[in-house]
Design a protein around this nucleic acid. Structure first.
Lengths: 373, 373
DNA sequence: CTGAAAGCGCTAACAG
DNA sequence: CTGTTAGCGCTTTCAG
């Protein structure tokens, strides 16, 4: 007699732990020895409740249970409630891994973001999440830390969960990452930026135009001796594009940055802005305005000015990017460019789920004239 | 002839829209038709490459491919490279859904957080992620918005992905949520707070003690007419506990809050702090210090003072909670309580994966005496 | 060192 | 309306 493959254990199924100790918080003296499902080798192996258990308890077939639980197909009210009751009593939690494999369509959505330094990414995610949740999807997230190779690895890893769609930040990816996204067979949304070639759906605003708008604003306000303070933008491609746009306008007007300072920190930060401005001013280049890679840095610069009694914008004008909530709450609201991040996330997620054609959505940006220019 | 079961569809799946107007960036000449797929079975159905395809191409059995790909079990160098080559050529991306189902152990970790308003949660997640990633785990995240029922739903939903562990914020959950966490059979980590009854592993710091320490600090500095500015703390239980601790100390000293202001906003925010302080001061209660539910609020209050030339701390002292980076970069560093968030995340994730016994880890906090008290 | 085959838990035809 | 059954793609015995 052959006995290949794994044999189904016949271990006695311990009564489905009815945890419901009810009776309130405090009490609850359940002895739970060492949690983790009593992996106690052999002996009493704790098995998780399956649809089969529910079916048996309700005295019906598995498929009927499946129908009821997914609320799909018609089932008599009587059977339905019988099943629901059984499921509840057994504390049944469906196994979506199995469901996904069987149905070949998952309720997982992959998301790869560059960082979670400031609130920009979280805000976008909040928008995305609103939509996903309403549609019953669960996000699987990866953080690349502005590292293209890490991003590539994350994409591969996430794709192996066979998500129904994937959202990534920006348009720049390694060739292999792009190839994977192209070939994975699911919708791809690239968020935040629209300057470049997209894969499928692109939702964002032009970084270059934002940079240009910032420069034009400063020039229109007669600032001419402009400096730049940024973080390490080798990885932050979008910050680089803004800088490029800004610089282009300067050039078109026969100008250039008078001085600039790059903070070696990878992530943008308030501190980088503070330090950068301090250094720049120490060099006495006679600046009348500073353009920052984003609001975090601008905020830092602004704090430096506040502390050192540098009158803004009389002595020095400041301009950032993002339009973070905090920038309109500082003693003087900061001049910046605000992007509709939550909306961007919602739009992206909606397009991802909607199944429409590939598109590019420019959500635009708004130049916020604060009191620092 | 019976033909039950599902027949494999032959529907032509539309090729994953190649938005690409080609011409791409530099290289990209790789003929990679369409990544991971196109096993163009019969017809032109875009089928995803499976382990079977790799096995066939390499002329070996599936199990051998599995062994090589998981780097588990011994395989001759020759076969190994043959397989690796085949997998590469086919652009094979393993299906972890299937793998998880078969092995009954996933590389997914569930995470449920209350919000992503400020950087507190992202920082904890960063710590968690560092550890998870290094161990090859992928986080599945849910955001509860400080809503216990939503949290319960999220926990259930996440548990249905059969994660190998789950991290949640705080110790307060609905009875059903707690029951699910207890009975799910995997390790559970409760982060941020340690004041209460934990389920399995608890990593955080005492909110109550933090509140007490704040009060003691202010009293020690002779502030007596203290006010409170907070957001809607019905949902933010931890803020409530801090307030409770603070108030307890006041009572023990025969004092009480002179006045208080709760901003109806659910999430904490800089604006709530600004508005709250403005209202409080308008009532002229002769306050000499204000305790905030957290740094966001404190920051808002500080900005109000800066704008209205209220000398801090001479006219008014301010005290927050969290120790966000920005609080030490404002013109005057804010007095606050700093918690080791990244470390907390790391510790939590490590314990989750390590398989040790249930424990409670108090990561403590540090009272940062800034310039606002 | 390698292959065959039996499931993992669930979904989706298909046949009552 | 409901049960039966054949997989989903992979892992894991078990037998060469």
């Amino acid at each position: 007699m052959k006995k290949p493959g794994r044999k189904k254990e016949n271990t006695a199924l311990p009564p489905p732990r009815s945890l419901k100790g009810k009776k309130g918080s405090a009490a609850e003296a359940t002895p739970v020895p060492s949690f983790q499902a009593v992996s106690a080798a052999n002996g009493d192996r704790t098995r998780v409740v399956t649809i089969t258990d529910v079916a048996q308890r309700a005295g019906v077939g598995e498929s009927t249970v499946s129908r009821v639980l997914r609320n799909h197909g018609s089932v008599s009210q009587a059977t339905r409630s019988k099943i629901l009751k059984a499921a509840d009593e057994l504390n049944y939690v469906p196994n979506r891994i199995a469901g996904t494999l069987a149905s070949m369509s998952s309720k997982l959505i992959g998301i790869v973001v560059p960082s979670v330094g400031n609130t920009v990414v979280p805000e976008v995610l909040a928008g995305v999440n609103t939509v996903l949740e309403a549609a019953g999807f669960q996000p699987v997230i990866g953080v690349s830390n502005y590292d293209a190779l890490r991003e590539e690895a994350l994409i591969e890893s996430i794709l192996s969960w066979r998500p129904s769609g994937i959202l990534v930040a920006g348009l720049e990816h390694t060739d292999r990452a792009r190839a994977m996204l192209r070939g994975c067979g699911v919708r791809v949304v690239e968020l935040l930026d629209i300057d470049g070639e997209g894969i499928d759906i692109v939702v964002g605003s032009s970084q270059r135009m934002a940079g240009r708008a910032s420069a034009e604003h400063l020039l229109a306000h007669s600032y001419r001796r402009i400096g730049y303070v940024g973080h390490d933008i080798r990885g932050d491609i979008r910050a680089g594009k803004r800088l490029e746009g800004f610089r282009a306008v300067l050039h078109e007007n026969g100008l250039n940055f008078v001085d600039q300072e790059f903070h070696p920190s990878m992530a943008s930060s308030v501190e980088a802005g503070r330090v950068g401005v301090a250094r720049l001013l120490k060099r006495q280049s006679g600046l009348d305005a500073i353009y920052f890679s984003n609001d975090d840095l601008a905020l830092g610069g602004y704090f430096h000015c506040l502390e050192h009694d540098i009158s803004v914008p009389r002595d020095l004008a400041l301009f950032g990017y993002n339009g973070l909530e905090i920038t309109r709450l500082t003693p003087q609201p900061l001049s910046t460019i605000r992007t509709p991040r939550v909306a961007m996330g919602k739009v992206g997620a909606n397009l991802l789920l909607s199944g429409g054609p590939s598109t590019i959505v420019d959500v635009g940006f708004e130049l916020v004239v604060g009191a620092t220019t």
